[in-house]
Nucleic acid binder design. Sequence first.
DNA 1: TTGAAAGCGCTAACAC
DNA 2: GTGTTAGCGCTTTCAA
Lengths: 345, 345
Amino acid sequence: MVEYINGKKIDENKPITIREVSEAAQVSMATVSRVINGNPNVKPATRKKVLKVIEELDYRPNAVARGLASKKTTTVGVIIPDITNVYFSSLALGIDDIATMYKYNIILANSESDEQKEIQVLNTLLAKQVDGIIFMGNTITEEMRRQIKRAKIPFVIAGSVDSLEEIESVHIDYVAASEEAVRDLVNHGNERIAFVSGSLTEPINGEYRLQGYKNVLAENNIEFDPELVFETGYNYHSGEIMWPALSAMGVTAVYAGDDELAAGILNSAQDAGIKVPEDFEIVTSNNSKLTKIVRPKMSSITEPLYDIGAVAMRYLTKMMNKEEVETENKTIILPYGYIKRSTTK
Amino acid sequence: MVEYINGKKIDENKPITIREVSEAAQVSMATVSRVINGNPNVKPATRKKVLKVIEELDYRPNAVARGLASKKTTTVGVIIPDITNVYFSSLALGIDDIATMYKYNIILANSESDEQKEIQVLNTLLAKQVDGIIFMGNTITEEMRRQIKRAKIPFVIAGSVDSLEEIESVHIDYVAASEEAVRDLVNHGNERIAFVSGSLTEPINGEYRLQGYKNVLAENNIEFDPELVFETGYNYHSGEIMWPALSAMGVTAVYAGDDELAAGILNSAQDAGIKVPEDFEIVTSNNSKLTKIVRPKMSSITEPLYDIGAVAMRYLTKMMNKEEVETENKTIILPYGYIKRSTTK
DNA sequence: TTGAAAGCGCTAACAC
DNA sequence: GTGTTAGCGCTTTCAA
């Protein structure tokens, strides 16, 4: 089918370009470009005429061409270790919402927590000319740090820390949050408190949470016992098989770094006939839905996951617009909370 | 800093383009393009020389420019209703893995299950010139169908059905799966079996699951009672408040369309002092981790979520390459399973 | 307020 | 095998 508009022939099969619009509207491409981009320097009458043609022709600007010409793609890269993990997907939701609000699209790239893949994924994002990158992950490796610096592109870490504080990031105060959780346990008279988390090579565990845990023990004159620190995986199964080891060490309470992990420990203790919270207490870290689904419901630190993602994205938009970023340092700390449920006395 | 390679001055600050490479290597841009794209029509010596310069200059092709010139972006759009829902994120993981395998990137777009947003998101994906789209969602509205047709772009529905079977999709046989679940319940002597799911306007519930449910009742001469069909939300809370209503109808078993929902029902029944599975049985639909975390562990239909995503993406790659798609119709049915745990006798 | 024209960095004929 | 040369569809000076 062929259509004529203002005497110009329009071929239905190939997408109309700014040129067709300009011809049909009898203005220059520059003018069409101006109205598309909301440039005020267009006479209202002209704008109206162009808009009408755009409507009639059902013209949609080609974002790729626009990206090439303007050197901005209005898309940001998001590196995520595991999209099926609620911790990360909650962050991602916050990121996406704010991105949408600021008219950015998101290229989601799975890193599988693999250092090789992280680098590789970073490179393909750069090749796609993203305007900025949000990184979620557990550790920021040296190689990654090097690549980021070299890329000279706005970059924000969400829900994790850069222990060198070189790269902008948003997260909570993990040390203080851990302290609060462990303090609750200590206050109930527990002395054999285990810290169970993922890899201690991740700063969040090995540096911050562990530090908070130690701090509270110290302030209560409880001797730190390295054997009460359990390094395992961030998943239900790891917790599920853990009770015997915990029990053998005479543990009466656990501070867990992950909800699934905590749920596994909780269930395995109860399956062994232990009464919770009477004989065993546990607090966890992420306050995901899971904390309310298991029985008893779990006490937990609360992290504003959605907000962390949202703030990280907002921070990134500021960097991309080269707005003044008002923080003295590169880190944004969001408030954490602690919610007491039924796995603690 | 300024560097010279083969007498050409290289400005560190702006990215290297194919032109710089071609000049430094003393070949044409076309030749550089050929080696980048693995075109065999390049003399090995030349290829080597070019590769060396690419390495030295640390050149990375600009995917945006490439996209504009070739009219292919090697990115696909993925429309997802809720990234924090494991059902969808599991599909997304499968999609992403296969996409990566075929060198595609993914633009993830949240639709919030909102019809308006779905359309809007589709349009921005089209503007970004994605090579194809994978759609996850509960219903495919008429407006959406129209837009898809108009877009003339490879499009696959993952984990949901197009009841008109006009659009390519991959999913399981929901009717047969429901039948198997309900049959297990009937076989244990239950006659007051409720079907609890999300909105019945979604074909998966209102047409397929409900049909399977009815089929089994009929084949066992149990009269269908519309009051045993409960339409609610896909979330834990909806289930949590549901026991009184179920109990009032004399329900002894439930077939639930969602795991969180099922977990809520299970917990609320047990909190009311009901013994499971002795006095109440329940089967659910997605076999997420949750089924193993609650107590008792839930019996469930199993859907190969990851595979559905993966197959959908694979299907899409074939369409994008205009390969022959061998299916007689547009639907790919993957096998489902049923796993018996402890919420059924 | 508008238009002309030069790119953005790459690919894809086509020629040699 | 390799180079030349048009574009791809848009933005962005610069002039008018």
